[in-house]
Design a protein around this nucleic acid. Structure first.
Lengths: 116, 116
DNA sequence: CTCGATATATCGCTGCCCTAAGTATAGCTC
DNA sequence: GAGCTATACTTAGGGCAGCGATATATCGAG
């Protein structure tokens, strides 16, 4: 099933930023994309995603615009320059962290899977 | 410096269990070992570690014994069978999670580092 | 003999994520 | 056209985990 809540914690901003790095997305689309790309294991609720987007916007990492041309109103989000910087920085930190924990697992991890 | 608090969250039980898989350890020793093996980036506070050990013990994953032979009292912790099972299970889940997030990062991650 | 390192324990604060509830439109079925 | 489901966004409230602070005690160095 889904990953334990605490595993995702701390990676959520990162995966959202990563998703936006491919181009503009609206909220509901992000939820579906993450679910699809993770094989259903990252299944964020709306109440989790939107506050993250709002916080990223407050921080100047994303920019949003309403699109009312379609039947349903949609709010599109896109990365700012600052957001790209944040993504690069968070990515570096995450890879660092993953390599570190992977090292801790040592033989245990290797026994399960050769490489991450 | 250290990893963001939330990144570690959800991996703490795992790294503690992994550390114990090498043999018996006492609390202060675990703190030092994790700090050393992570290059100082996993720098748990005592107030973080001991509650984790107590919880693992309540869950039957670790067993503890006091050693008063040395000047300073030490409480040694060791994995139980159940603990080994938990370690294997958590390791599998973590590797799964890492592979998943790594996939999300796509080109971004690859640009920074070839593999985790 | 004072200071810092060793060694364990507990409590309260903070902050993140989730649950839940709320609003609203589009499109389908009957 | 009534009702259901999927789409689409928002906010308020609560739980829980780790951190900082605090307490206690021994040991070695200066």
């Amino acid at each position: 099933m889904g990953f334990s809540r605490d595993l995702l914690r701390g990676s959520l901003d990162l995966v959202v930023l990563a998703e936006l790095s491919c181009g503009e997305r609206y909220g509901y689309q992000i939820l579906s994309a993450l679910r699809a790309r993770s094989g259903g294991r990252i299944d964020l609720k709306a109440g989790t995603l939107y506050p993250i987007l709002h916080k990223l916007e407050r921080d100047g990492c994303v920019r949003s615009r309403w699109d009312e041309s379609a039947g349903r109103d949609r709010k599109w989000y896109g990365l700012t320059e600052k957001g790209r910087g944040r993504l690069a920085e968070n990515t570096r930190e995450w890879l660092d962290y993953a390599r570190c924990v992977r090292g801790m697992l040592g033989g245990e991890g290797a026994a399960v899977e050769g490489a991450v």
